[in-house]
Every structure is written in C-alpha cells, then in structure tokens.
Simulated assay, not measured.
Amino acid sequence: MVSKPILTIVVPCYNEEEVLPETVFRLSDVLESLIADELVAPNSTVLFVDDGSKDATWSLIEQFHDANPFVTGLKLAKNAGHQSALLAGLLKAKSYSDCVVSIDADLQDDTAVIREFLVKFHEGFDIVYGIRQDRSADTFFKRATAQGFYKLMTSLGVKIHYNHADFRLMSKRTLDNLEKFQEVNLFLRGLVPLLGFPSTQVYYDRKERFAGESKYPLRKMLAFAFDGITSFSVTPIRFVTVMGFLLFALSVVAALYAILGKLLGANVTGWTSLVLSVWFIGGVQLLALGLIGEYIGKIYKEVKQRPLFVIEKELTEHAEILESVPLAGSQPATARR
C-alpha cells in the first residue's frame, strides 16, 4: 500500500440546518476511523459547500469549523444549484487532496461505504461509484420515476451508471481532467463516465432522509432530468425529424384520398377531421419549436461562458496548509496497483 492519501469529503448544502449537526458527527466519525486504520492521512477533512442557504446552515458550518478540526467550508454568494455547488467543492478540494468523496448532506447515502471507496482507491481505481441496490426507503413515485429516468438515459445512448447519483470517489487526476470540461449545463452523472480511467462500483442500501425535507421536489427533478437528456443526447431532435417525415407522409395520403373522392364525386365534408388535424399538427409544431429552443438556449448559455459559481467566503485554513505538501496518491492508478 502506498503512503496514506489525503481525503476530502465534499458535501453540498442548501438549507440543511436540521440535518447538519448529525452529518458533521457521522462524517467526523468516518474520518477518525479511516485515520485510525491508516487508510487516509491524519490531515483529511470534510468540506461543506453552502449553496446560498437561507437558513442557519452557514452559521453552523462556521461553528463546527471553530470546534472541529475536520470541518472546512465554502460559502457561495448565491444559490447556484446542486451541481454547481458540488463542482465548486470538488475543484477546491482537488488542490490539496489525493482523492475526493462527494456525498449529499441528507445522509440517505450510507457514510459507512466511504471505507469501501478507500479500499478500492488503494487497489488502483481512480473512480468509485456508489450504486443504490435498495431504494425501499424512497416513495413508490420517486423510485419509479428515478429508475425510469436511468433507463431512458441509457436508451438514448448516454453512458450513465444505473441507480448512481453523486455519491462517488474521484482521484486527483480525474478531477484535473474534469476541470477541462468547460460546460455550463452541468450534469456530472453523465460527465464523470466520459473521463475514462479505471473505475468500479460499490453497492449500498439507500436510507431515509435523517431530518429536514427534500430539496428536489417534482418540478426540480423533472428539470434536472430534462437537462441531463438535452445535455448528452440529440435523440429528441432526431425524434422530431422522424415525426415530421411521418406527418408529411400522412398528409400526402390524406391529400390523395381527398383528390380521389373529389374525382369520384364523393361528398368529402371532413370538417371534424380537418379541425383535429390542424390542432394536432399545430401542437406538434409548437412542441418541436420548444424542443429546438431548449437546445438553442443551452448553446446561448454555453457561449456566454459565465462563471458557474461565485465564492463569497472560505473556511479552509485547516486544509490550505497542505497545498505545499506533495500529494501521496498523485501517481497514475497503474502505479498504485
């Protein structure tokens, strides 16, 4: 085994004052155990990223930072969204870490699995995906829609790990390469598999949220799913093209039928069918324009190159002293095997 790697656990937070004390306690306990077993370096830390919370989340992070040597923090100037907050933490942590684990603050992901992540990292894997094998704690609706989303993404040709969210371990070199993806429309679950590098999976049971309420209501889940689909696949646009050809073919058939009826002297009234067809075609056109507009909107966001997040405050002095220390696990994965 190589020298002990420096681990940073990145936790994006938005209005998590109810669950934060328990999260700090459990992650600190995990780090203490990993340090005692010499799986990570003693100067490993937890980095909480406050995504513009409106409650006392940041005040709690400051208090824990003063009392707990493991706790560090970033405060974003405004709510940038879960994916941007997570990326902010990952990019900050990679400057002084050999490996980084990302996990949500709600404790639905099993913190004990982080140990298995580190074991796999020592075996030479650069990316370790946490895969939910049991989602019985989720409601039927959430479980069904989430699994349907993963299947849909796979059918559209997107390389994504089934039942994986953002609970994963990444090595420093994978994060260095992730930073090269200058995308504004972030969907990390799709971006990370594009990196390549040796990877593996660890399975765990998903738990109920420890406290507070979900920050992903139906509206946000649908928006997130649509962003993922349109950011990684042009299949919806191709579907619109195919539908256009089909409607054109149907219109030709309808025209021939009308002409034939006229020549044969049949009484072609067709008022109802005409109105229905106009409404149907009009609806399809609006749908197609909206879909095309969505892709154009994404291009508009990309070309402006606005920053994904703005950091207002940092509480990372526990970790910044490590930046001058050579990273223990910065060598390629093949060298760690």
Rank of each mutant, 00 (worst) to 15 (best):
T72P: 02
F141A: 10
T241A: 14
G270L: 04
K78M: 15
K298Y: 14
L315I: 03
N177M: 07
V46H: 07
P12R: 11
Y96P: 05
D134T: 04
F280T: 13
A88G: 09
L191P: 01
P332Y: 00
K120T: 00
T111F: 08
P236G: 07
L118N: 02
G293T: 10
P193F: 14
T241R: 13
L186Q: 02
F25E: 14
K151R: 10
V252D: 06
I6N: 11
V192N: 04
Q83E: 05
K215L: 07
F121E: 09
Y295H: 04
G89Y: 04
K220T: 09
F70E: 11
P5D: 07
I237C: 10
K262L: 07
L90S: 06
I6M: 10
L34Q: 01
P198A: 15
P193A: 12
L191D: 14
P69I: 10
Y203N: 10
S273T: 11
Q201P: 00
L286I: 14
A254D: 13
A80N: 12
S53C: 00
W271F: 11
I6D: 07
E38N: 04
H318R: 09
V49D: 02
S199Q: 13
A56S: 13
S251K: 08
K54M: 06
S53D: 10
L263G: 00
E183N: 12
H65I: 00
L118D: 08
W58V: 00
R206K: 12
I299V: 05
G283Q: 08
L194K: 15
V284R: 09
F197R: 06
G282F: 07
K120R: 12
L264D: 03
S33H: 07
E116Q: 15
G290A: 14
V119K: 15
L218F: 00
Q285R: 10
V310Q: 02
T334D: 14
I127A: 08
M221A: 05
Q133A: 05
E208V: 13
F117S: 01
Q108K: 04
I131G: 02
D55W: 00
S231P: 00
L178H: 07
V303Q: 14
K159Q: 10
L39A: 11
K301V: 02
G124K: 01
V202R: 05
S95I: 10
F248R: 14
I296F: 11
E22K: 15
K54W: 08
V49K: 01
R115S: 04
L178A: 06
E18L: 06
R168S: 12
I281D: 01
